[in-house]
């Protein structure tokens, strides 16, 4: 597993890794999957909007059509002309997103990426450090730290929430809109309480992910956009770390 090999070169006992900056940037596997994930996510958002505007109303339960009271109505014109390419792109991007995500998930578990970098440590929950971190985030005092996987508690929480809560809900609610998939797995309807509910959950979850992306990009910008992007794509050479 390339990720573990790379991380092993900077091997330090786990308990010291939190305080001493020893990591040498993101593993190759994380960089590749992050890049593919970014591209497919943008494609999913764009094509998702193209599909949504064909019926810009959200409902709860099974029924949902013009003439029925909506849970929420977007203040835009109905536009039927973009669902064709929209749906094709949405599914192509979804396949990339899911296959890429499974690779990331398996390697993250096997290569201990999640345990090393995303699992919060006990000392991070100590009240003073937590208060300081929240204050720093609220006042946008983001340290221009090293471009590697040394995440703060708030970061870890956000990443874990996106990876293990929002993304699975996103995928499952999407599958619940497929009449073929639900013929094979009708339990999906029970999970979400109906087809229109699943559609609404799918939208709300996507809004959550877009909100995450906005904050994520803000943090990347505040902590050094160019260096962060380079570190997450081509990677960081040790010389850069020294600068």
């Amino acid at each position: 597993m390339p990720s573990s090999a790379l991380e092993a070169t900077g091997s330090q006992p786990d308990d010291r890794a939190a305080s001493i900056p020893t990591e040498r940037g993101h593993s190759r596997l994380v960089r590749i999957t992050h890049t593919l994930n970014s591209v497919s996510f943008v494609a999913l958002v764009v094509s998702g909007i193209a599909i949504l505007i064909a019926h810009p109303r959200l409902y709860w339960g099974e029924d949902g059509y013009f003439g029925l009271p909506a849970l929420f109505e977007f203040p835009i014109e109905t536009n039927l002309s973009h669902t064709g390419w929209g749906r094709s792109l949405h599914f192509l991007a979804a396949w990339v997103f899911v296959i890429n995500g499974v690779i990331y998930l398996v390697s993250g578990l096997v290569g201990r990426h999640f345990r090393r970098h995303l699992l919060p440590r006990r000392e991070e929950f100590a009240k003073p450090s937590l208060v300081a971190e929240i204050r720093n985030h609220l006042t946008l005092r983001i340290p221009r730290g090293g471009a590697g996987p040394r995440y703060s508690l708030l970061q870890k929480t956000a990443y874990l929430f996106v990876i293990f809560i929002l993304t699975p809900v996103m995928i499952l609610s999407g599958l619940t809109m497929s009449p073929a998939v639900t013929a094979a797995y009708p339990e999906l309807f029970t999970l979400f309480g109906g087809r229109q509910s699943a559609r609404t959950v799918h939208f709300l979850t996507s809004a959550g992910l877009v909100l995450f992306l906005a904050v994520h990009l803000l943090m990347v910008t505040l902590s050094g956009f160019r260096r962060q992007v380079r570190a997450m794509t081509v990677g960081v050479r040790s010389a850069d770390e020294e600068v």
């Binding site: 599909i51 019926h55 099974e62 029924d63 949902g64 669902t83």
Partner: peptide, 11 residues
Amino acid sequence: QHNCEQGWSAI
């Protein structure tokens, strides 16, 4: 349930 590609559904 009729699932229209536009997004609406009815039974």
